[in-house]
Design a protein around this nucleic acid. Structure first.
Lengths: 190, 190
DNA sequence: GTCCAACGATCTGAAACGGACCATACGGGT
DNA sequence: ACCCGTATGGTCCGTTTCAGATCGTTGGAC
């Protein structure tokens, strides 16, 4: 019936409205930027156009609200909620995507100065450490132990990922310190 | 002088040609799909158009090669190499992006059946385990210990990330098993 | 008042994207 | 010889994404 191809953006919009109740585009933009937007950037323009599309599909309903202002508040329709829940219940098989420029640089490191990798590693270590600290503060502020509640759980995954990255870059840094002037090339053909 | 905004795609192209030597678009496509493309998808169409752009900027040079076939082989120019090395030497401050649909579903989990999260977690565990296995086999096949060599190092980061994800979903699964019918809502106000 | 900053929203042009499509080759099978 | 299937190699095209500029609105501070 519906199903004109819903994108991740669609579900973020539906989901956010589901969590927060009726919202304007701006509300969505802010709510997203302060949570999942930290890992997966949804450009703001999309958060204005997408709700309109969803409305035209009958998954959202809009009310022009109060004193004739142009801001519109969107709510989930029954069908919207059904769609959302169906998505939540459906299996997920796609591989995640990483998109990390640092990783790219690392991949091509042998084309630059030997020093570049080293600097890169240290940069990354510092940055990940800093973010871990920020997250941990957030976690505290939001109230103690991690549950399955939104925000909390995403924070937890975020932390896990940051720690992984940190571990990786740290061990790379150590390797570099040890071998320092070492080959940095292919392992010897056995 | 040059600098008409180079994207990650640009650098992947430059870098790959740097690593492999003169290449056709198809070569690039394959080389990328079997390495970094595993985490960061570069659509093939871009790998045909981007080298042309780079050529027109003077960062690549093209030779129409042999018997009048239509395939073109691109090589780095001096300026291309300089650009690439400058990029490798420059600091990197952008936050990586994650783009994981499973994470999205998790974030919105409370809108679905309590069972959904659980199923999701188990799915993810299975999938990550499987990928870890694949990577480890690759690592062996490519020759032993991880170095700073391309492929190797990317694999290593990939593994680290997969392990992190696995740890996360596993611990979530345990929590769910323990609390099973538990609230799945906010942590209790202390 | 009027100036500035933050808020809220829209528009636009350029990339990114993915999938359909075209072509050419190669290897069997019958 | 012919047909079929599959891998190689490349192009095109119609949507989405995306980022940034722009525009209006609001609400203090002075």
């Amino acid at each position: 019936m519906s199903a004109e191809r819903l994108s991740p953006t669609s579900y973020v919009v539906l989901g956010m409205i589901g969590l927060r109740g009726p919202s304007t585009s701006y509300d969505l933009k802010r709510a997203i930027n302060r949570s999942i937007g930290y890992f997966w950037v949804f450009p703001h323009a999309g958060l204005y156009s997408e709700p309109q599309r969803l409305e035209s599909m009958g998954l959202l309903s809009a009310s022009s609200e109060e004193d004739g202002r142009r801001r519109r508040t969107y709510s989930l329709t029954e069908e919207g909620l059904r769609e959302l829940r169906a998505w939540l219940a459906a299996p997920t098989n796609e591989h995640f995507q990483l998109r990390d420029v640092a990783e790219l640089k690392l991949f091509f490191n042998e084309l630059g100065e030997p020093d570049d990798v080293h600097r890169l590693a240290r940069e990354q270590i510092a940055q990940h450490q800093q973010r871990i600290q920020v997250y941990e503060e957030m976690q505290q502020r939001f109230g103690g132990v991690a549950g399955v509640a939104p925000r909390m759980v995403t924070l937890r995954l975020g932390l896990e990922m940051e720690h992984a990255a940190l571990r990786f870059w740290s061990s790379l840094d150590e390797d570099l310190n040890r071998g320092d002037e070492a080959p940095a090339a292919e392992p010897p053909p056995s």
